[in-house]
Design a protein around this nucleic acid. Structure first.
Lengths: 242, 242
DNA sequence: CGGGCCATTGACCTCGGTCAAGACGTGTGG
DNA sequence: CCACACGTCTTGACCGAGGTCAATGGCCCG
């Protein structure tokens, strides 16, 4: 696997899927021409409408996948984390989404065709990609349900619970506390609301003794009550292992 | 391919992907144990939370994929059409979505494991599934954008434009008129609103001379104006061919 | 020190939800 | 053939969640 000049050689050179890969698969993946790249915060890595031949696998850092609307607004589709794949598709085509870094971000960049080739080369890899894609679809489905059917406070709480769980790794652990570099504008763009209203909602959630989000830190004050309040059931975050 | 007793032998026995399959792939698909089944209107075919081992490929008819909330509400995720796949995933697991018929519905039912096996057996089939899944993801992304960022009237118009385009088949044709068996409750559940408000929105859209939805029929009165009003760009509906 | 980004809050307004009441159509049973 | 019930559509009155506009303050960084 080629390392970009700016990469840190200490970073492990295999995408951090949480599904075990065979040595052969690792070797094949390493031969695909993947490049480990770093991006500064708030860089546009891929822009909606561009002819894109790349796919991305998140190594570490925060970013968002979003659509752009003609009026300059955006809808954040997902905050992908380590091991998530962006741009898995059959062939090159104009991208319908944008990818923007939020913090410093490290990603594996792979020619999209190479990912397709991987699918065709290794049934096991195909299964891995299928698993990862299925989980990302479940997350997206839950996101739509959240935006479409929950009211503001529950919606915000649900997203913060989901992020806390995804940070845990296996999709089941949930710490009572995590650092979160998202701004209230980011939350608003993910939740289909305005940042001003997000601000009021966060105030409400604090006053309800459910959770506090200040100074880039999320603190769950009463985790069971918050889960109930948000209707949060983490089963959709489970990554099915092969 | 096994035919269920109630099936009509005149129905062609290969899933109607709009991507050409080789004879070998057809034969392999036919050997997977797929069953052609018919459902009556308003039947629950798969329920969220059930342990599901089946996947579905829509043959014909209208249905909806939705999530169910504890309070009895639901969020419609998609109205799948001919060739769309539901339940493509690595292995058996509890379903996080429900599938309900709206009209009479004909589907191919396949053991989910068989689909995975197909992916592992035929690189070409894997690519076909990847293409179909990528398009369905694009549709879902646009749906989230619609619900999160467009206001009611544009949101409703956008959905009706999308459905009209998807009915066309290749994702680019859009008739000025189509029959639509959805109720205003269905639209509301898809768009994250109430049926009462959908009713007022449809009235507004008629009075704006954009479109009319009455008596199970959608008529686009001024198609270019409606597309502009809804911010509708059908490129996300293109099915990339291999 | 100044500029920019972000968070916070108030005043006001509007979109969309809630509640209630009918109208219409269609299929069913008497 | 009629009566009725049920699902769906329609409309009005009212309310509340969330958006808009505006002003302010904190904080970080050049």
């Amino acid at each position: 696997m080629t390392l970009a000049p700016e990469s840190n050689p200490k970073i492990q050179d295999t995408p951090p899927f949480r599904i075990p890969l065979s040595e052969a698969d690792r070797a094949f993946l390493a031969g695909l021409g993947a490049t480990l790249r770093r991006y500064a915060p708030h860089e546009t890595i891929m822009r909606q409408g561009d002819d894109e031949g790349r796919a991305f696998i998140i190594h570490s850092g925060w970013s968002c996948v979003h659509t752009d609307l003609p009026d300059g607004e955006r809808q954040i589709i997902d905050f992908p984390f380590s091991g998530d794949i962006i741009g898995l598709r059959a062939y090159q085509s104009p991208s319908y989404i944008s990818l923007t870094s939020i913090t410093k971000l490290i990603v594996f960049e792979v020619p999209a065709k190479a990912l397709t080739a991987a699918v065709e080369h290794s049934p096991r890899l195909a299964g891995t990609f299928l698993s990862v894609a299925a989980r990302q679809r479940a997350i997206l489905v839950e996101h739509l349900t959240n935006v479409g059917r929950r009211r503001g406070a529950a919606r915000a709480a649900h997203l913060l619970l989901e992020i806390g769980t995804r940070l845990g790794g296996d999709g089941q652990r949930l710490a009572s506390h995590y650092e979160c570099p998202l701004t209230q504008y980011d939350l608003a763009d993910a939740l289909g609301m305005t940042a001003i209203h997000i601000n009021r909602i966060l105030k409400d959630l604090r006053e309800l003794d459910l959770l506090s989000f200040r100074h880039r830190t999320v603190d769950f004050i009463n985790l069971p009550a918050t889960k109930k309040f948000a209707g949060f059931n983490p089963s959709y975050l489970l990554l099915e292992r092969i």
